[in-house]
Design a protein around this nucleic acid. Structure first.
Lengths: 247, 247
DNA sequence: GTGGTTTCTTGATCCAGATCAATGCAGGCC
DNA sequence: GGCCTGCATTGATCTGGATCAAGAAACCAC
């Protein structure tokens, strides 16, 4: 973790906003106490690189606030976003030395960091952390596989619709999705969207305006999107309408 | 698990070919004994559906022998393979009722099955299984993310080259990759390859013949491929040549 | 052997999305 | 204000891979 110009501090776990969703979610008070003793908070400004593929990583961390992106790239600069890190998501991998991907802060990010060695040691004594880590890894695996379907088989329009409905489901309560004129704020730039969806920025822009012309969405400023009817948007994702929603 | 016309039996774990790579890899003899008591072997003929997305799954299992594919599909039949299951790979997810994807046997498959409830209970008492399951899930996550890069950003030729080099690395010892004229047998049909790579069978076929014309490979019967120079093939994958190979 | 089925290859054409290029449209800064 | 600099939209053109359509080759069963 190349946290060059980041500040570090510590706050009590009981006030932590991700207390019940992060790796520590299942911890008993005594386990939490152990974690508390070795954790340290860090902040990274928007745009800062948090990890570089192949480089030594001697930290693991949870995202406390902010958004970061996980990317992989090849030879000529082609880049694919392979994950979006939101509060409570976990960075780093016990049992591996080098970072497997690049991670960059999109907004200002606060991290709850642990030195890797002590954390790995703790893992053996705290089954609740390990349990939670397994749950989270399996959820991420499901999300990654959903994304493979999108990248391998969906059209540009379906990809955009899928992303919008993903953001809707993450940002709103299930009840709110039934309402008309849901408004969401895109958390990422057009370039990041393109990298996420395996498209170019031009195609992203064009499909957004086309969806707007078709009345599926209304564009409200640079980052705002209004969805008159969520069901109508969902119908554009190409997904089977059956239940089984995973992410 | 819809194991309608499958046979079931049991053999001793100590003779098991996947004993040191499957979920049970880290088990002590006493833990193995517990697993042994609740396991049951099943076989599925090639082509049989092992799981259907959305359906109730009351089994989890390890692949003992054979190959299966994990797929996801959308509305009009477009299908994407999102994983290839080889011996020692794990099927099913503790803590989830419905199968998240479709699974189909490619060859005849032997499974080492556990009823889900007892297995989940055992998990709590056997940290070694949980540890191993976490390792395996994280490895699969890495593989899925590599595949996202392939599906989102690679050209058809790069995809084919990536697949071939993946199969080479899985099938051969690292020393053998330095030799000239490595021969591999494709484990899957053209259609399955297309579903894996997010292409059509026609494109797969064309790119294979083109790679052959360019002298990167030689085609040897329907399923055989000879690679005169592995390094030359690797150069066609589009991957950065740096270390950090994950899968 | 023959006929039928499935899998693979090859060719011709088309089109969704990439690429190239120009223009709009904010901030931020002097 | 005027001038950058960095995003976003829009248009014109090109192209890689999809689609449509035949064959060819392997693999049966009889």
């Amino acid at each position: 973790m190349t946290a060059a110009q980041s500040t570090s501090f510590r706050i009590d776990c009981s006030y932590c906003p991700i207390r019940h969703r992060a790796v520590c979610a299942k911890c008993e008070p005594d386990e939490l106490d152990l974690l508390n003793r070795i954790k340290i908070y860090k902040t990274c400004p928007a745009g800062q690189v948090i990890a570089i593929r192949g480089e030594q990583m001697d930290m693991v961390a949870s995202i406390v606030s902010g958004t970061a992106m996980v990317t992989r790239s090849i030879t000529d600069g082609r880049t694919q976003m392979i994950g979006l890190l939101l509060p409570s998501d976990f960075i780093g991998r016990p049992g591996r030395e080098a970072a497997p991907y690049d991670i960059t802060a999109i907004t200002d990010v606060t991290l709850c960091c642990f030195r890797k060695r002590p954390f790995e040691q703790l893992l053996l004594d705290m089954p609740h952390v390990q349990e939670r880590l397994l749950e989270m890894a399996l959820d991420e695996l499901d999300a990654a596989r959903d994304w493979m379907l999108l990248l391998g088989r969906k059209t540009a329009r379906e990809r955009i619709a899928s992303l919008l409905s993903l953001i809707l489901r993450r940002a709103k309560l299930p009840e709110a999705l039934a309402e008309r004129d849901c408004r969401i704020e895109l958390p990422i730039s057009r370039e990041a969207i393109a990298n996420y969806l395996g498209l170019t920025i031009e195609t992203v822009s064009r499909q957004l305006t086309r969806l707007a012309k078709d009345g599926i969405i209304r564009i409200d400023g640079k980052r705002g999107i209004i969805v008159p009817d969520v069901a109508e948007l969902m119908a554009e994702t190409g997904d089977d309408s059956d239940g089984g929603v995973i992410a």
